[in-house]
Design a protein around this nucleic acid. Structure first.
Length: 478
RNA sequence: GGCGGCAUAGCCAAGUGGUAAGGCAGUGGUCUGCAAAACCAUUAUUCAUCAGUUCGAAUCUGAUUGCCGCCUCCA
């Protein structure tokens, strides 16, 4: 079954065919490191993490590049505000990016190149463009001439003529066309700079991606990803630069993820509603955050609300509870799990269709329900049933490894949730254990009134208890 | 003004030509001393509205309405 990917370039789902058999080359635009990462960064990074994981699970060797933009106006401005060196600021936020993404169980890409480490490659690409008379230099600045690239606008579906009518654009009379964009910016006092054939300066924003994707993946590669907002101008400009410079098609498949809204509103500086990853994971388990982010199709917008997050918590708990129940009831490590079963096959069908994680999660829940049903049967577990359980367990673990959720030991997951809540809610574990013991004694004596009183007192403390076959357990009320 | 997207039950959400996945919430039931958890049943003759194509449309076409994004830094 072929993988189908929605390609922004064609506006359609296309069959995924790699340039080299069994190998995928993928470039995703990473952050400009001038501030902490927000939940929107998390979505993009998690989505492409899952895409890379899925492709690997299908037997592809994935070469995945995600860059850091570590030189840029925003970095310089911020560094000036903080009276800090731009390079220091950037490296601080790169470190924080790694801390956040590691916390979200994001696998590191094959390469994480920085713009400032590739100034030579950037200069080479600019030189090619100047040689071909597609770029021109004015007073130490170098601009890309959009009129010289006939495909300009093909990704975003814009025409230069249309845009000139209504767009707000800076009037720089030196530019040949108002949409010409900077490849190289001459240095201003106090700014970091590198020497170049056009004098000291620094690269423009778009050129680094053209230079670095070529450096690591070649002139043509399979997948180029990023947030929807990057389609124009960033990715449009990347295509123009690379295709003009190398005379070849740039990326085959353009994949763009949708935005995260906060309570139905776009995150914006004016609303001050930026949700930082480091704050979100204080409130929610990182796997809950992933599970939430993957509960919608990656191209649709997703709305971050308390209700949606609470549902993600309930859903993930349900899956973990089933996994624990399975491993309590049967030996899940049996070899019958080596061959994928129905759950995995259906999950792959969903993922093959433009990485439909929302549908995949539906299949997981479907499987969870079936397994709970099986385990509810009072009949003894026969070898045949054990086999079914082993296969389903292995399948669920496989899907979890692609999505990067429910990958922890269930016991540890629930314990970490518990200890987290205990820390926050000031819960007295000893008192809880004592009340539970009291209740067990009362129940043995069939003193239901006393047993219920103990349970009520626990409930007042925010504790729910469950009488399971293997004993009474307690957990924090959601 | 230009370009693009979305509209599916109380809520969230899959489904892009063959007769509406899944989750949350609700109701009834099984289980339980009672609960909790789990399971079962139930919840859209219908997919914003109107018209068209088709044997057949939530899915395709056109129009209308409403919401949103990009065009300026933005995941």
């Amino acid at each position: 079954m072929a993988i189908r990917i929605y390609n922004t370039l064609s506006g359609r789902k296309e069959n995924f065919e790699t340039i080299k058999p069994d190998k995928v080359s993928m470039y995703v635009c990473g952050p400009t490191v001038y501030d902490s990462c927000h939940i929107g960064h998390a979505r993009s990074v998690v989505v492409f993490d899952v895409i890379a994981r899925y492709l690997k699970s299908q037997g592809y060797e994935v070469k995945y590049v995600r860059n850091f933009t570590d030189i840029d106006d925003k970095i310089i401005n911020r560094a000036n505000e903080l009276n800090e060196k731009p390079a220091g600021l950037a490296s601080r936020y790169i470190e924080e990016f790694h801390t956040d993404m590691d916390a979200l169980y994001v696998e590191r890409p094959s390469y994480e190149p920085k713009a400032t480490d590739h100034i030579n490659q950037i200069i080479d690409v600019i030189n090619r463009l100047i040689e071909k008379n597609i770029a021109y230099e004015i007073d130490g600045d170098v601009y890309f001439s959009v009129d010289k690239f006939k495909g300009y606008g093909k990704l975003s579906g814009r025409k230069l003529e249309d845009m000139e009518a209504g767009a707000r654009i800076d009037i720089d009379k030196r530019k040949k066309n108002p949409f010409d964009f900077a490849l190289w910016k001459s240095t201003k006092p106090g700014e970091p700079f590198w020497p170049s054939p056009w004098g000291n300066g620094r690269p423009g924003w778009h050129i680094e991606c053209s230079a670095m994707s070529c450096e690591y993946l070649g002139e043509t590669f399979d997948i180029h990803g990023g947030g929807k907002d990057l389609i124009f101008p960033h990715h449009e400009n990347e295509i123009a630069q690379s295709e003009a410079a190398f005379g070849k098609a740039f990326a085959k498949y353009w994949v763009h993820n949708g935005f995260v809204n906060i309570n139905h509103e776009k995150m914006s500086k004016s609303l001050g509603n930026f949700l930082m990853i480091k704050d979100v994971i204080k409130r929610y388990h990182p796997e809950v955050v992933r599970f939430f982010l993957l509960s919608n199709h990656y191209r649709s917008p997703i709305d971050f609300t308390d209700k949606a997050m609470d549902e993600a918590v309930v859903g993930l708990d349900k899956i973990y509870a089933l996994l624990q129940r399975l491993s309590d009831n049967t030996d899940c490590s049996g070899k019958d799990g080596n061959r994928p079963g129905d759950c995995w096959n259906r999950f792959c069908e969903a993922m093959d269709d433009d990485f439909n994680t929302a549908k995949g999660i539906g299949i997981i829940f479907d499987t969870v329900r079936q397994l709970n049903k099986q385990l509810d049967q009072k009949t003894t577990i026969t070898p045949d049933i054990t086999k079914i359980l082993q296969i389903a367990y292995a399948d669920l673990i496989r899907t979890g490894q692609v999505l990067g959720v429910f990958c922890l030991d269930p016991v540890k997951y629930f314990e970490s949730k518990k200890s987290n809540a205990i820390g926050k809610l000031d819960i007295d574990e000893i008192a809880i254990e004592k009340l539970i013991k009291e209740r067990i004694e009362a129940r043995k004596a069939k003193n239901w009134a006393k047993a219920d009183e103990a349970r009520d007192r626990l409930s007042d403390m925010g504790i729910v208890i469950e009488d399971r076959p293997e004993g009474t357990i307690w957990r924090i009320k959601e």
